[in-house]
Design a protein around this nucleic acid. Structure first.
Lengths: 148, 148
DNA sequence: CCCTTGCTTGGAGTGCGCTCGAACTCCGTA
DNA sequence: TACGGAGTTCGAGCGCACTCCAAGCAAGGG
């Protein structure tokens, strides 16, 4: 083991303000059904199963009857996936990242590279959107003064 | 006619810095072939034809043999469409906007509403991306200090 | 005159990210 | 014991935004 274990690096909580619990249930009895996770994450149960099928989820625990029981860690992971989805990152790339996570700490470097590239991408997109905002402001202004 | 004519409101140039011509050719001999516009806009000729088919382009002028001849105004319109595309606006919504433009100045109000809504949307997306950026920074930082 | 190049049309095909349906199991309550 | 509700798997289907194809036409060069 290096400084941090793999799990803590890869499932860092998304909102670590300290105030209020980060999760609906404390660690220990964090065994959510798929419909609970659907409600929490906003994703459909179908989508959650599909994410698992394509390798976008770490292997989810099962109850004795084979039903999925999601953990707080799974929720954290879904939080990260949600953020990455907002950036427009293709699902295939997220699956790639998930694979790196599964391969263990030897892939730290590669994962960091991926995140760095993603960050630059996000920065570019923010700039693009700000340009667009300027255009919209300008046109709105024209419409406003046109029938003032 | 109100203060401004429809054309000037709807095909405002995107980059009006004044320095350098806004278009490859000056108004007057602005009759671009489809492949020229493809090169300029970065869209494929296929996509340009498709845009016209679905009503996302104002009617494009034709040569005596029926070939498309795009104008500087068309280029401006494609510039706006390009910006709106970056915001993730569905093509159907852009078609709606194009329809409003075709319907004339009576739709100024509705067009402005649409742009206002889009602007709020863009603002939200920028905020989301900035949140995501923070998450990425945080994770990158963890990876950096982990094997420092 | 033929050949190439670039354009035209309508319609079919593609890739992505879900989304849904069918058929089944399991569990809790009446 | 019957039933409803929530879960399971696998595979098919869908909506979007292109992307491509086939067949054909017009202009210019050798």
């Amino acid at each position: 083991m290096t400084v941090m274990d793999t799990a803590s690096v890869d499932t860092e909580p998304m909102n670590c303000q300290g105030e209020g619990r980060r999760h609906p249930r404390p660690d220990g009895d964090d065994r959510y059904t798929i419909s609970e996770v659907a409600a929490i994450s906003g994703l459909s149960a179908h989508t959650l199963r599909w994410y698992e099928r394509i390798g976008l989820m770490p292997h989810v625990d099962r109850s004795h009857t084979g039903q999925r029981r999601f953990s707080n860690k799974d929720l954290d992971w879904l939080g990260l996936v949600g953020k990455l989805r907002l950036t427009g990152m293709p699902v295939a790339d997220m699956v790639r990242y998930a694979e790196l996570v599964r391969e263990g700490e030897s892939t730290f470097g590669e994962r960091k590279e991926l995140l760095l590239a993603t960050r630059e991408d996000v920065r570019r997109r923010i700039t693009e959107l700000q340009d667009t905002l300027a255009v919209l402001d300008h046109k709105i202004d024209i419409y406003t003064t046109a029938n003032a």
